[in-house]
Design a protein around this nucleic acid. Structure first.
Lengths: 370, 370
DNA sequence: ACCTAGAGTTTGAACGATCAAACTTTTGCC
DNA sequence: GGCAAAAGTTTGATCGTTCAAACTCTAGGT
């Protein structure tokens, strides 16, 4: 088997030097067109491809972005990270970047992985998910000046810090739209089933409902308080909670939920109880929602991915911007807030209607925000 | 910011040569214990980590496995690939390997990516999913002697070819067990809802049902023929098909399905029709199945991942075995067939029973095959 | 004709590791 | 003690690329 061709081989065939070949590849504008043509045909003739490891060794960057693949991504909403990953991989490829995966047992171990991957020049930047208040990973990355972006806002911390680039989905707006959608259908006593207070994401979503209800339901504050229900993220417990609710309160007219899991549980209880015209809207637009005809708020993960790369590499760049030299200085925003879109399906109609013919339906009500 | 330490720095501190440091890292047994100790403390003191790109350039292997992240992995069963990916990443890390992702528009483009990643010494091996009859990717990889393993059997081709290593889930056995489970509960007229004939996987699963029914249902062949139903992979159409079925045939007692999507559609039709004691079993054990209490056949993707790495790297190896030097020569099998396990939930009981308390239930009936 | 600036190209060194071969020290045996 | 083999260690070259500086050539001004 013949050796793979190197710049040297190309140079010989094109009758130029190594460096000229390198220039044709990296800064073609400084090479005389005639020479460039000769080099380009030599490259094509030999089928030359740069040796990525040699480039990385010399340039000290890897064109690779690392992301932790979380082992506990099970459950109904587990596919969110995976869809994000799909979008990232695809869009990164368009900019000549690749995604590398790693796993870690815990946060401490993850920092150890950061160190290993950074020191080995394996990755140029990291994407973090599942961040939390006082997250030590973020402090470490900032102190080491390693470029990174988090998918998730630094709740309760400095959201405008130029050291911490982030992308997030505007949960407030999503739930606000969902609630408004039901209000627009003439309902007023719309409940909210969400997670216990204290999580940034959960509180954000709930306040979307609260704001919409205050603005348009006409209900007094005490009633709103009574329409706010709490449950942990689990289908069976949500189902049981909803069963109780339906027995106790016959005036409840519809429900907006913090997740598809909660919505699915509620939906099962509603069906069981025979309440056929009880609209429910979930959040995440998971495959389950699609399968059972549950209206849901869709996170536009392609836009989240696009925002992630924009923050890391600039609008069209093909390299990761060193930490600190990015948007902050030039006054551009250091974050992206993506507006989700409501996907309307059977479950949010007052009366049961025919479902769309295909499982890939659900593109109505599209808006091109952000 | 200080430069990262190199072997040179470690060597200086430990008062040895570069090569000795390298030996301590790569073949510690040939270094005198005393020297080794000195080098090891120098490594710890300086916090030295090998520069991965330099290693790759020199050794010409990358400790990285490539896998295509398929953009069309939506739908209920989409999480299969993702769960496999999780397992692979985790287990690969234990052997010092990493997973790198890439995307491709089509098969031809995927081969182009293979070439790029191989030539750039970016990856040592590939894992392929979604293989099909006459798959050109496989021919290319074999002809280029690039190590690879497919998740999926080469249906209709030489399954024992030492050039084509593969791992798969024994769908026959899974569906056989599911059917037997229902037969054991005293049912006989158990239907099978599967995909149109022609796909290896689909035919394999159906024959699991057919074999179990022939052995234990006591029904004549003509009846079995009539109990075999076909539908494409979609929840709504499965639901409609099941509605028709339930109207037409009141003797049907239960159903085994080729996928959770089909099972979910059937389940919805059954609930709608008020047939509360009609057992259904799906396949894939997706989050949806878990959420709605659908019994399902679980692919043990950790075992599939383990098998994949075993074929690529040997039982405990930390390097990819060059193409052709693997199992074939030493007479070991060149594939792994993983037996799935049936996860029993509400949906397969004759009478509705209480669901287990948590969404992570479903570990009964575990078997430790393979 | 001479000089300079700039465009275009080449050369030598370096990135950080490992391989292969040479070299030095220890061990075992008579 | 002497000698050969084995064990342990060092040296020089190399992997394929890009950086930095040197070099050559052309065009334009004086």
């Amino acid at each position: 088997m013949a050796q793979l061709p190197t710049v040297e081989d190309v140079a010989r065939v094109a009758n130029v030097s190594r460096q000229t070949v390198s220039n044709v590849l990296n800064s073609p504008e400084i090479v005389k067109p005639e020479t460039r043509g000769r080099v380009e045909s030599a490259i094509a003739e030999l089928g030359y491809r740069p040796h990525a490891s040699a480039q990385r060794l010399r340039t000290r960057h890897s064109s690779t972005i690392g992301i932790r693949l979380d082992p506990l991504s099970n459950g109904v909403s587990g596919s969110i990270l995976d869809r994000y990953l799909h979008a990232l991989t695809e869009q990164a490829a368009l900019r000549g970047m690749r995604m590398m995966l790693f796993t870690a047992r815990d946060t401490e171990d993850e920092i150890e992985q950061f160190r290993r991957l950074r020191d080995g020049a394996d990755v140029d930047a990291f994407v973090l998910t599942g961040t939390f208040y006082g997250d030590p990973r973020i402090d470490w990355l900032i102190s080491q000046r390693v470029p990174f972006v988090t998918f998730g806002r630094p709740w309760g911390e400095d959201m405008a810090s130029p050291d911490h680039l982030w992308v997030d989905v505007d949960g407030f707006s999503g739930v606000y739209d969902a609630t408004t959608h039901l209000l627009g259908r003439g309902l007023t006593r719309i409940g909210y089933l969400g997670w216990p207070a204290g999580s940034g994401t959960g509180d954000d979503r709930r306040s979307g409902w609260l704001t919409a209800m205050r603005e348009r339901s006409g209900l007094p504050a005490a009633d709103l308080e009574a329409l706010m229900f709490v449950n942990d993220e689990s289908v069976p417990t949500a189902r049981r909670a909803m069963e109780e609710l339906l027995k106790a309160d016959f005036t409840l007219q519809g429900l907006v939920c913090a997740s598809d899991s909660l919505a699915l549980g509620a939906m099962m209880a509603v069906n069981e109880a025979g309440r056929r015209s009880f609209p429910i809207i979930g959040f995440d637009n998971t495959p389950v929602a699609q399968a059972v005809g549950l209206s849901s708020v869709e996170q536009r993960l392609d836009q989240v991915a696009a925002g992630t790369l924009e923050l890391l590499m600039g609008a069209t760049g093909r390299r990761v911007i060193p930490h600190g030299e990015s948007a902050g200085g030039s006054g551009e925003p250091v974050h992206r807030l993506v507006t989700p879109k409501l996907v309307v399906r059977r479950s949010s109609h007052l009366a049961p209607v025919e479902e769309a013919g295909s499982t890939t339906a659900g593109n109505h009500n599209r808006k091109e925000n952000q």
